[in-house]
Design a protein around this nucleic acid. Structure first.
Lengths: 213, 213
DNA sequence: GCGCGCCCCGAACGAATGTTCGCCGCAAGC
DNA sequence: GCTTGCGGCGAACATTCGTTCGGGGCGCGC
């Protein structure tokens, strides 16, 4: 727990937060003065110093409006915008939606908090169609996050491109001797068997998200 | 697609973004000048006006550093911090963790993007223990989001408090004549039958989240 | 060539902003 | 009563910062 704040200090801190919230830039000392009904800029300065000492904010001297709020809030837990590149079949494979791979022009994105992808770079997302991965808790309409990958270990969930069909699908991957088995996680569905040369791994499953309805 | 930017305008826009990223307050015109190796503040001003005309930024005149980046990025898609009030059994019910209801003192929170809860107020979260809801795609270790509720329709997933046992559990709710059936979503498990007076509904299921491992 | 639009330059001006300084009131401790 | 520390006040003062202004270069259409 951090040091206690006086009433005015709490008030200023709260004002700081809300101001940042909707303006996206920090208030000047005189903004705070007006916003909190304080009669002198020096009082604001005084309490700002206190707030800084107590570790609530950081000030950048010689910079106007150089105030940052420290700790939890907007600092950590940043939002990452993940591009949703299209739809992927978990069921019957469906054609690759747009350009050569997945297409890169869509403006469709999902915002997730950083911890969903744990710092992996280049994560992308696909909308799931079908229920073939239902036993892996991936349902129709879910969004899956994938990271680019060219290879997979047995049992990993991957998005693969089936060259002969020109389609992509989400399955568990098993390399079995001279063939590849693409296994749905749905006991009512049959696996796909194909030649290794026919499959091109597009991405490795990271996590899924079920948009609330 | 928005209007094209000249090289310098792109450079400035990029600088703006990265500056915002790590400082958390916008740069002054002279910051931009230095950062982009421009020889006059008026050039910066000129291009900033262009950027504003083209809809990339918004400037607040008569405010120093009054620059906001418009569009997708950091602007909307807010983060909500949901308190995680404890653990709930999806399996054998477990004792209510802390104080009278769920306890309200924990600092544990999960950050989610706004669209997970679609503006519902007072949403809270519980960590799931057990696999009794596995067929509803809720696994052990998942986090479920609930909204406060006192009643439920048949088939809804709810967190209920079993008075006689002093325990809470997550189940599907069915009112059947003189009794209540609490149905797990796991075919290997049996429902709980009990009297309506014995159950107190604590919350209605909204969505779940599987923290990435 | 000439005008025009676009982009850049440097310097200066004035408004916005952070900081300092002397002074006051009040409560706690001696 | 006196001192000391906290919190507040108001008025300068010194920087920081945004804006303006006269001017220049370059390419394009007439």
């Amino acid at each position: 727990m951090r040091e206690e704040l006086s009433g005015k200090q709490q008030q200023i801190f709260e004002f700081l937060r809300t101001f940042l919230e909707d303006k996206d830039y920090p208030p000047s000392i005189r903004d705070i003065q007006e916003g909190c009904g304080i009669s002198s800029t020096s009082v604001v300065d005084y309490n700002l110093r206190k707030l800084e000492e107590k570790g609530y904010i950081r000030r950048d001297r010689e910079v106007s409006r150089g105030i940052e709020i420290l700790g939890a809030r907007r600092n950590r837990a940043r939002i990452i915008e993940i591009p949703v590149l299209g739809t992927i079949a978990a069921g019957q494979p469906i054609p690759v939606p747009t350009s050569d791979r997945f297409g890169n022009d869509s403006d469709d994105t999902v915002a997730v908090t950083e911890d969903m992808i744990r710092g992996r770079p280049n994560v992308f997302a696909l909308r799931v169609k079908g229920t073939s991965m239902i036993e892996d808790l991936i349902d129709d309409g879910d969004i899956v996050f994938l990271e680019p990958a060219q290879a997979a270990s047995n049992g990993e969930k991957v998005a693969v491109w089936l060259k002969d069909r020109g389609e992509v699908t989400l399955k568990r991957y098993y390399h079995e001797g001279t063939r590849v088995r693409l296994q749905p996680a749905n006991s009512t569905m049959e696996p796909i068997y194909t030649a290794p040369e026919n499959v091109e791994i597009q991405g490795r499953f990271i996590s899924s998200l079920r948009p609330s309805g």
